[in-house]
Amino acid sequence: MRNVEIKAKINDIQLLLLRVKELFGTTETLIKQHDTFYNVTKGRLKLRRLLDVGDGELIFYDRPDVEGPKLSSYKKADIKSNEVSVLNDVLIEALGAKNDVKKLRHLFLVGQTRVHIDEVENLGNFLELEVCLKPEQTLEDGEVIANDIMNKLGIKKEDLIQGAYADLLNA
């Protein structure tokens, strides 16, 4: 699976939430997440706990740490609630944990794009766009879609950041 992703720091979360709802007429889903990142030699590996439902997702992804639209490839496995803490213990024992990221995610679906407005504990507020690419689409196709949404939302190039929230917490 592949997507084109951008991440940007935002100053006025309420204004951005309003703008997304007005421009795209989409409904909002609130998701409380707790991600634990593990030590790996390639890409990133995290266990995402979906705190509202108790289930989780083990996610491996690889993408360049650059500002602006970037291609991300990923694999994901759903984890049932009774296995999440056991899997976390196993991964910590085997790989060691880097850090934890806790956030409240405002999710909006806009066409083939997942629009995330994240309130990240101890870090601030961010916009993340994930353009889910169809098999026949290229990186450039995804960049066009991401740039269009960025422009409509008033996100400027200087707002863009690189890396993952886990990296920013370590900085």
Rank of each mutant, 00 (worst) to 15 (best):
I79R: 01
K42Q: 15
T29I: 13
T36V: 15
I13K: 14
S73A: 07
E67N: 07
K9H: 09
D12V: 04
T27A: 11
Q33T: 11
D55N: 15
R63L: 09
F60S: 08
K42M: 11
S81F: 05
V40M: 11
L47H: 01
T26K: 10
L47A: 02
L50A: 05
L47N: 01
I31R: 14
Y74S: 03
G25A: 06
P64A: 08
E22R: 12
G43S: 12
V20S: 04
T41N: 15
L71I: 09
Q33M: 09
D52V: 06
G68L: 06
S72M: 03
Y74F: 15
Q14W: 00
G54D: 09
Y61T: 07
K70P: 03
Q33A: 07
D12S: 11
T26P: 02
K42P: 01
T36W: 08
P64I: 04
K46H: 05
K76M: 12
K21G: 02
R48Y: 04
L16E: 01
L17K: 13
L23P: 00
Y61L: 12
L18T: 10
D78W: 00
K42H: 14
I10K: 03
K76N: 06
R44S: 12
D78T: 04
E67K: 15
E22Q: 13
L51F: 05
I13C: 02
P64E: 13
E57D: 07
I79M: 02
P64Q: 10
D78K: 11
R63M: 08
D65K: 13
F60E: 10
D12M: 02
N39Y: 12
E67H: 01
K75P: 00
D35A: 05
V40D: 11
